[in-house]
Design a protein around this nucleic acid. Structure first.
Lengths: 120, 120
DNA sequence: CCAAAGTATCCGGATATCCAAATGTTAGTG
DNA sequence: CACTAACATTTGGATATCCGGATACTTTGG
């Protein structure tokens, strides 16, 4: 009957478990962001370098990087007027490798899946 | 110089690597599909059982299951007029666990990320 | 064969997402 | 103190995605 059964429930805005993980996956569901993440897996790069690498506008790249940073995929480091981004958690590489492995084994079926968009 | 440097390039429709993996991730970026996938991680279930579990329309659930099947996350088995779905590849569980682990460690930042939608 | 259960597909409509372009902000430079 | 470079944020428009409801398909049962 208590209106506040648990302390953590004080924030109704916070998505519960599954919603959070879905949001986490959504960050990698965009080709541009995934490309950026892979670019940042090995080395540290500035926003301008990322722009040159994927060919989108600077504003869009900045937003994408901010998104990846918010989700914990990459870490941002400020040095003067430069912003350096890089993957810090080794589990991120694991996740990408695992997904690549699974996707590769279902490549043909995946390509045929019209329920997700052919924009790719 | 050759116009066709590699045999695999003969199919321009097929998304190249990154696009494919992004599509793969996109399947898990929807809370309903992720909920279904977790439901099918341990046991085999029919479409009707899935409908009862997540509370969406039958048509929608069927489409979601088809999507998960196309992407290779679950396997479909036909028995009379029933369709049984289940996760078959153990790497799928690994992927979900890894994502849960990463998402949990970035829960607060993730919840604050407004670049991805607050619909959750 | 006809009816019903289980499942798959099609349909607009509401919302979310991505983009380029323009504008802000901050930190070096002359 | 202008001025520029690097980065961040905002805006409006096009497209994608998700949804319920209606409909078609398939198999079992009478």
């Amino acid at each position: 009957m208590a209106s506040l059964p648990e302390p953590a429930a004080l924030l109704p805005v916070e998505p519960s478990g599954v919603e959070m993980v879905a949001k986490f996956f959504r960050a990698l569901s965009d080709p541009a962001r995934l490309r950026l993440l892979e670019f940042l897996l090995s080395d540290e790069h500035t926003v301008t370098e990322c722009v040159a690498h994927i060919g989108l506008t600077q504003g869009r790249v900045s937003t994408h990087l901010g998104c990846l940073s918010d989700c914990g995929y990459v870490q941002a480091r400020r040095q003067g007027r430069f912003a350096y981004y890089q993957v810090s958690d080794p589990r991120v590489a694991e996740l990408v490798l695992l997904a690549r492995s699974l996707a590769a084994d279902n490549a043909t079926a995946l390509a045929a899946c019209m329920r997700i968009s052919d924009t790719a």
